[in-house]
Design a binder for these strands. Structure first.
Lengths: 185, 185
DNA sequence: CTATAGTGGAACACGATTGTTCCGTTGTGG
DNA sequence: CCACAACGGAACAATCGTGTTCCACTATAG
């Protein structure tokens, strides 16, 4: 069994990615040296995994997309009442935490694949239109606005945690309650 | 009457600031050359007004604070029913447009003065607590959360305009309607 | 034990940005 | 017309981040 098969490479890669998220969320213009220090690896090691800075950025973007996709599936958006499914979706998205925040504030992450509608986007759009058909959503709220507000409330929730030092659980409750009230017909 | 008194210096300073906003909103890591080109001035002129890059950034931050302060006063937050005052506040804030978006996404702008509570913050906090006392706001919504949601909805509104190509007026209407529903007891 | 994968660190070249200096030009008030 | 304020542009040194190369160290599979 070689070292590669033990998953060592995969683990250092993850360490670099996670450190990159943690570092860039604090300072979007941080250098690779900062990321390396945060990851506890040498700067050269980063270049071994990601030849250029842009390669790291796109890998981070893809990583977020993967996490969003997994979270969407985990929420089972097609099961049960639409509003309950939206609640589950928010809970899963909220767990993404810092991974999400960076996608909001770093346009450099959202370069190529973010433009095309992802599988998650389609599932969420289907869920929202189902909720509309079920009469669970105020008809005055367009689907695109609902989608926008859903993500923005996640952002507000985490800001509430970070700036107002609110407990995670309270912030999530406020997110869910606020979304429910917006959607209410 | 000297040239300085004609406001020439003030106008070029404004041109530089406005160009900096317009440029950095598109590319947060744009160089001073880009800003100079956008402003239609030489790069050296920028250094005449702002010795260092950081000086430009802090001036931009202060400028946004001033605009927020002016918008807050213009909304007359102490007059009439609290909910109506909140509506006026949102309308004024929404007009700030790009100036606001940058404050959301550029931590470098919000360095020193942004930490301490501004006069506007205090006026808004007073308005929210007044609304609470009037029974116009769901008691389950803490004041800090209301404040957070108010700003975040402005962001959502402009994203709705930019990404979903919604008319400004529609986006503002959705913002107001959504906030009203969240606040409803 | 030995070969190899993985790593850290020093050193280097390169490009971009920044901050500064100097000089020529423009335009306007007096 | 003259003086002065303001500007643009060229040139320069200094800094910083990037990308690369090379070498030594460690641990582990075989």
């Amino acid at each position: 069994m070689t070292v590669a098969d033990t998953g060592l490479r995969a683990r250092t890669r993850r360490a670099i990615l996670d450190a990159a998220f943690a570092t860039l969320i604090k300072n979007p213009s941080a250098s690779l040296s900062d990321v390396a220090a945060s990851a506890g690896v040498g700067r050269t090691t980063i270049h071994r995994y990601f030849p250029e800075r842009s390669a790291l950025l796109t890998a981070m973007g893809q990583d977020v997309l993967d996490k969003i996709g997994a979270a969407t599936l985990k929420a089972r958006p097609e099961e049960g009442p639409a509003l309950a499914a939206l609640d589950r979706l928010c809970q899963e998205y909220f767990e993404l935490g810092d991974y999400l925040m960076l996608a909001f504030m770093e346009p450099t992450l959202t370069s190529p694949e973010w433009e095309e509608e992802s599988e998650s986007d389609r599932m969420v759009a289907k869920l929202i239109s189902r909720a509309h058909r079920e009469g669970s959503i105020d008809p005055a709220m367009p689907a695109s606005w609902v989608h926008q507000v859903l993500w923005t409330l996640m952002y507000a929730g985490w800001q509430h945690v970070r700036e107002d030092e609110a407990p995670k659980h309270d912030a999530l409750t406020l997110c869910l309650r606020s979304l429910r009230k917006i959607l209410a017909p």
